[in-house]
């Protein structure tokens, strides 16, 4: 079996949530505070939140959309916020810019609704990620599959979703390693296409394993 140029070190990753002390009660306020809130907070309510709610494979995309839908009763705006796909972004700032654009358009076209008081406030929080080396390291595809079977959902999310914000940008850690260290670009591309919005993290794990195993058998 082909050995990797560099082994893949699985990192056990977990997140603490820090309260920013900023709460908003209208869509207009959400817009204003979203301009200046920390990048760690935007990350928490989008990338991190998607992982935390991975089991909701229908109807959940990010905390902003959920609040606009459930607490502000603005389904059209919620739909627009939901449709922002985090896989398309190279940085949290680019994602923030699109969130701001959607909210600005709504506030400009629906000023009265943008000032309506929500049922419950939205509280900005930020993610603090802690990583330590996990007890699994892969030197080839078989060991990679073994490691993948053993990691937690949070660790899977860290490597498969959060990784897109780390260098090299917009690609998950697994696909990058498959191409860069094993020379398996096609397999890496296939893994990268697995949809995190319509699968739970357990589902994502199974699909990656199936891709890798069918590759090995072929």
């Amino acid at each position: 079996m082909k050995q990797a140029a560099k082994p893949f070190q699985f990192m056990a990753a977990s997140t603490l949530v820090r309260i920013c002390g900023v709460e908003v009660r209208t869509v207009a306020d959400l817009l204003e505070h979203l301009r200046t809130i920390s990048a760690a907070s935007v990350f928490n309510h989008t990338f991190q939140s998607l992982g935390q709610h991975h089991f909701l494979t229908e109807g959940f995309s990010n905390d902003f959309a959920q609040w606009v839908l459930a607490a502000c009763n603005q389904p059209q705006l919620a739909e627009q916020l939901t449709s922002l796909d985090i896989r398309q972004y190279e940085s949290v700032e680019a994602l923030r810019a699109d969130l701001l654009r959607v909210l600005e358009e709504f506030v400009a076209s629906e000023p009265a609704r943008a000032q309506q008081r929500a049922f419950e406030p939205f509280y900005f929080c930020e993610a603090v990620t802690v990583t330590v080396p996990a007890p699994w390291r892969a030197h080839n595809l078989a060991e990679f599959c073994q490691g993948l079977e053993h990691i937690s959902r949070e660790t899977l999310h860290y490597h498969f979703v959060d990784a897109r914000l780390r260098e090299p940008l917009t690609v998950n850690d697994f696909s990058y390693w498959l191409e860069d260290s094993l020379g398996l670009k096609e397999l890496g591309d296939r893994v990268d296409l697995i949809d995190i919005y319509t699968n739970t993290l357990d589902g994502v794990r199974q699909l990656i394993l199936e891709e890798c195993r069918s590759w090995t058998e072929a």
Partner: peptide, 15 residues
């Protein structure tokens, strides 16, 4: 919660 959760918790604790 699954073996992975427990194993990773022990990995964190080891630090």
């Amino acid at each position: 919660v699954g073996q992975a959760e427990i194993d990773e918790m022990r990995a964190v604790a080891a630090c």
